[in-house]
């Protein structure tokens, strides 16, 4: 890095002459070392998955969750500095709760992403703070039903002023990724952390924009992608953590929940099998190549 030693990387909120904020770029480096985290958005829900590297055998399996619930309908997974992630989630919970305080209803995922984006961005503006060392993936389901205001009594008129519009569609899945710069975009599939490159390649193959992948299949794909992304750091043990949010008539009824144990195990088993298959295939081709060589000889 030629820019090191020029002094422009020492303080937050300072641009280098060629228009870069080095502190933000270093924050991105912290993210790139973190465990892989992905999100998949399909027509009937969202899946969040995380690779949790087991740093010590003394840690209790299944404890120390990486994916957090922010409101009933929103979850967040992040890669990078864990404490930064915790603080970020805490902020997200406050935002979701204050939205309810004002609007008496759940915060739309887009609005939450916007607010969190602004929050993260503010940490690039001042020399007294450092940027967030995380990239967060936010998944949620905005209720498609006509949502009652919290504490609402009664249903209101059936027609006329204040009446309902028959067949009106609203809500749906939301998946957003927020980076240390404060940049956030909406995605069909999002990946961050150490194995993001491999994960992104796999996500692209899923052709998510066509809307053909079902939520349950997405769970299985998510598990497989985390396993694929882990290939490069095979020496380290890891745990797979997955949560999902379905539509109101789906398995989670619009709530952000952990993927049930049996489905998680099934997905994990399928992921391992798919990986073994790939390895065998590779080995198979190698074997035939050596045969060819032998033939040549």
């Amino acid at each position: 890095m030629t820019s090191i030693g020029t002094g422009y990387d020492l303080s937050n909120s300072v641009f280098s002459p060629d228009g870069r904020n080095f502190q933000v770029e270093y924050a991105v480096k912290a993210v790139e070392n973190g465990g892989t985290a992905i999100g998949i958005r399909c027509k009937d829900g969202v899946v969040l998955a995380a690779e949790k590297i087991v740093t010590s055998k003394l840690l209790k399996p299944g404890a120390n969750k990486k994916i957090a619930t922010v409101d009933r309908h929103v979850g967040i997974v992040s890669a990078g500095l864990v404490p930064d992630g915790r603080h970020f989630v805490s902020r997200a919970r406050d935002e979701a709760s204050s939205w309810r305080g004002v609007y008496k209803g759940p915060i739309p995922t887009s609005a939450l992403a916007n607010r969190l984006g602004s929050y993260v961005q503010a940490y690039t503006l001042y020399s007294s703070v450092r940027p967030f060392g995380i990239t967060a993936i936010l998944g949620g389901w905005d209720s498609e039903a006509e949502a009652p205001v919290d504490g609402q009594v009664g249903n209101g008129p059936d027609s006329g002023a204040g009446g309902k519009i028959q067949g009106a569609k609203a809500g749906g899945p939301g998946l957003w990724m927020i980076e240390p710069s404060g940049l956030y975009w909406g995605y069909y599939g999002a990946a961050t952390g150490k194995g993001r490159q491999a994960a992104k390649a796999e996500l692209e193959k899923l052709n998510l924009s066509s809307g053909e992948l079902s939520l349950v299949d997405a769970v299985k794909e998510a598990a497989r992608i985390i396993y694929v992304a882990h290939e490069d750091s095979k020496d380290k043990e890891f745990e797979l953590e997955m949560t999902w949010i379905s539509s109101l008539d789906g398995p989670t009824k619009g709530k952000h929940e952990e993927v049930p144990k049996d489905l998680l195990e099934e997905a994990e088993k399928a992921a391992k099998k798919a990986l073994e298959g790939e390895v065998e295939e590779e080995e198979g081709t190698k074997a035939s190549a050596t045969e060819d060589q032998q033939m040549e000889e």
Binding site: T69, R72, R93, S97, D150, G151, Q152, V153
Partner: peptide, 23 residues
Amino acid sequence: DVSDMQHIDRLLNSIDIRENYSS
């Protein structure tokens, strides 16, 4: 009182959401 009921209902709602923070 119904407005007090709504107040308490929101209170219960926020407690329920906080309950869901832990899995």
